[in-house]
């Protein structure tokens, strides 16, 4: 991975230069997404104004939760923007380009696009974390370190989940609805207090739709250090990452390329 870092940095730089070609569009999308997230959070402010706690979770927990989820989601889909359209790349034969170059296909494909609106999510996440730290009056260097680790884990699990779902395209063909539903499910469930779920639902949030690894678990870890949670976060990320890489490469053997006229943007 270290060997690929200069290449990844060059790729992200190219994405940024490309986005700068359309500065107004970039800034509009970024600010628009920040406002979108802020409006959504207002709902929780109103909610917790009436009910101070939901099975142990309060508004401060929601600030931490939104901080981790938005930062992880924003960073993940900004740096690996093609994670949102991998299914189309596979179905339309657009992996040819990455396969003809001497870099890992999945990494190259994912990092070859940046999502402008994700920069808004990322900024919003940082602001939300800053607000949570100030509001809780417990900010420290260690908390910042925990936040960094939690956000990285959220990126790893989110991108792995998106890769896993979209790798099904190798077997079942293009399935935009499945991708969209899976994406909506993981984002929606990651933004709810985990204490609302128990039993089978909770199990699903740690396995089939691993929203807990993106939201509640890392958010709780940021708030307070817990060795068990650290192990869960690291273990979960490693498992999902390995699974995604394995399934993608199994599917790649079935890749059928294509002859559609393409443009690299």
């Amino acid at each position: 991975m270290i060997r690929h870092l200069p290449f990844l940095l060059a790729l992200w730089k190219a994405n940024l230069i490309s986005a700068m070609e359309y500065r107004v569009s970039f800034l509009t999308q970024m600010v628009g997404m920040m406002l979108n997230n802020a409006f959504y959070f207002v709902f929780w402010i109103i909610f917790f104004d009436r009910f101070e706690q939901v099975q142990g979770w309060n508004l401060l927990d929601m600030f931490f939760l939104f901080g981790v989820v938005a930062t992880g989601f924003g960073a993940g889909t900004y740096l690996f923007g093609n994670a949102l359209r991998l299914s189309s790349l596979i179905a339309e034969g657009q992996l040819d380009y990455y396969l003809s170059l001497p870099r890992p296909v999945l990494l190259h494909a994912l990092a070859s696009r940046s999502n402008a609106s994700s920069a808004g999510d990322f900024t919003y996440g940082l602001l939300s974390f800053a607000a949570a730290a100030v509001y809780s009056d417990s900010f420290s260097g260690l908390m910042l370190l925990r936040f960094l680790l939690a956000s990285l884990a959220a990126v790893a699990v989110l991108i792995s989940f998106l890769v896993l779902v979209q790798s099904l395209t190798f077997w079942i063909g293009n399935a935009p609805m499945l991708t969209q539903n899976a994406f909506n499910a993981i984002i929606t469930f990651s933004l709810y207090p985990i204490t609302l779920f128990d039993g089978t639902a909770k199990l699903l949030l740690f396995t089939l739709v691993p929203a807990a690894f993106i939201g509640a678990l890392p958010a709780e870890f940021v708030r307070q250090f817990d060795l068990g949670q650290l192990a869960q976060i690291c273990g979960g990320s490693a498992i999902f990452l390995s699974l995604a890489v394995f399934v993608f490469h199994r599917g790649l053997r079935r890749y059928e390329s294509g002859n559609a006229i393409q443009v690299r943007t």
């Binding site: 200069p6 290449f7 940095l9 060059a10 790729l11 190219a14 230069i17 490309s18 070609e21 359309y22 040819d96 380009y97 003809s100 170059l101 001497p102 870099r103 002859n259 559609a260 006229i261 393409q262 443009v263 690299r264 943007t265």
Partner: peptide, 26 residues
């Protein structure tokens, strides 16, 4: 390799930017 129907140059960037990116890739 060059595929006539599948450009490798980045559409919105000058070719020189893709050349430098290729420098890192290779």
């Amino acid at each position: 390799s060059v595929f006539g129907q599948r450009p490798q140059l980045w559409y919105h960037l000058p070719a020189i930017d893709t050349f430098y990116l290729f420098g890192k890739i290779y």
